[in-house]
Amino acid sequence: MSAKSEKGLHLHRVAIGLAGRRLLALDRLISPGEVLTVMGPSGSGKSTLLAFVAGFLDPVFAAEGKVLIDGEDVTGLAAEERRLGLLFQDPLLFPHLSVGANLLFGLDPARAGRAERRRAVEAALAEVGMEGFFPRDPATLSGGQKARIALLRTLLARPRALLLDEPFSRLDAELKGQVRDLVFEEAAKRGLPVLLVTHDPADAEAAGGPVIDLARGGQGGGKG
């Protein structure tokens, strides 16, 4: 199949069922820099789809199909081997680590050497306008700062795609726009395929890419 050599995140004939009932079916390629939005009310299986792609699907679900990244089949890999960046609706900064240590935890292990790793993190902080935040306690940050650090932590691991699970739903209206723009901007800059799961139509609009609405029967070109 020609799709296998294509760049991007390919959800190849994915179908997920629970107790004999099919929740969703999907066959899609998300190209580098593209955002695919999956919409649906809670219980429609959109978070389940994300869990399947990320490698955390609860064994009560039955899943078929493959997940390919830039042509590589990662379906059989453990979550930590997939290199897919994950963002949830809460920033989930590790509360026992400083801001800098949170980022070091994410930073690609290929960057070797203590001093070199620290420099990389300081530089990344400066890039989002947060110079000097390295030793800070994450609990002392504002909501917008936490969101930025969470994004930065994900990006420093050099993921091959981004998986977003309602990442803006807990932010207030003004902040939501800023953080959303930042996430999409950074993803586009790095040419990352993005899978966004949300129930907010404004997110889908801002993403600007194709939209699949699970409430309307998963019209995602699935094999149904």
Partner: peptide, 26 residues
């Protein structure tokens, strides 16, 4: 919260690292 472990795994950390560096200290 299992999402902490999922975040750590998506950052490339294995189960042992998640236990020692995330779950146990938290």
């Amino acid at each position: 919260d299992p999402r902490y472990a999922r975040i750590a795994a998506s950052l490339g950390r294995g189960a042992d690292a998640i236990f020692w560096r995330i779950r146990l200290p938290m």
